[in-house]
């Protein structure tokens, strides 16, 4: 067996899906379960975002995958890290823990709901009269910048303009909120 065949055997769609989804879920758990340092939680969030970007690229959404890396991993998490380091927060969240029992109950309910939800999705998958399972055939241009731009600047032009106004309002609100001096 040549080296190329081994590479094709290891790096196929199924293995990539398993790898990316496992990394995304484990690092998302890292965000929630990390009790010691908020910086580690933010870095774990970056890993989760990057794994999700890989899943997006596997689903022919290259443009959205690049946006995910640029905006989420590049901008949003950096903003989180700036705030965490600016505020110079100490640990000790657990010291003021008032309702540990309620938290356990909440975590148990969420885990039970997750099990139920995944089993329901599995049932929907094996239901022959449900919606189709097979991917519709799409051309190689699907999800490219050109195709997205064609849809975004014609059908969704108003939405695009409104999102610009929303960003402006967000900038003004952030500056005003963070600038206030408190006496």
């Amino acid at each position: 067996m040549t080296f190329g065949e081994i590479v094709h055997l290891v790096i196929n769609e199924q293995n990539l899906f398993i790898f990316f989804s496992t990394v995304a879920i484990l690092s998302a758990l890292g965000v929630v379960l990390n009790l010691s340092n908020t910086v580690y939680a933010a870095l774990s969030l970056v890993v989760s975002m990057l794994a999700l970007a890989g899943l997006f690229v596997m689903l022919n959404a290259e443009f959205v995958g690049v946006l995910q890396v640029m905006i989420y991993a590049g901008a949003i998490v950096v903003l989180f890290l700036f705030v965490v380091m600016l505020l110079n927060l100490r640990g000790g969240e657990m010291a003021a823990d008032r309702q540990p029992f309620l938290k356990l109950v909440g975590a148990g309910i969420v885990i039970a709901a997750t099990v139920k939800l995944t089993s329901l999705l599995g049932a929907a998958r094996s239901n022959p009269s449900g919606i189709q399972k097979d991917w519709m055939p799409v051309g190689p241009e699907f999800g490219s910048v050109r195709d997205i731009g064609l849809v975004l600047y014609t059908d969704y032009l108003l939405l695009f303009q409104v999102s610009g106004i929303l960003l402006l309002a967000g900038i003004v609100a952030a500056v005003i909120l963070a600038k206030q001096k408190v006496d």
């Binding site: 959205v64 949003i76 997205i148 969704y156 999102s163 929303l166 960003l167 967000g170 952030a174 963070a178």
Partner: peptide, 19 residues
């Protein structure tokens, strides 16, 4: 396109929320 809009709203939300 919808995901594009969700990402924009998330960016604005993070800016305002962190402020």
């Amino acid at each position: 396109i919808f995901v594009f809009m969700v990402i924009i709203v998330a960016a604005v939300e993070v800016a305002v929320g962190l402020a």
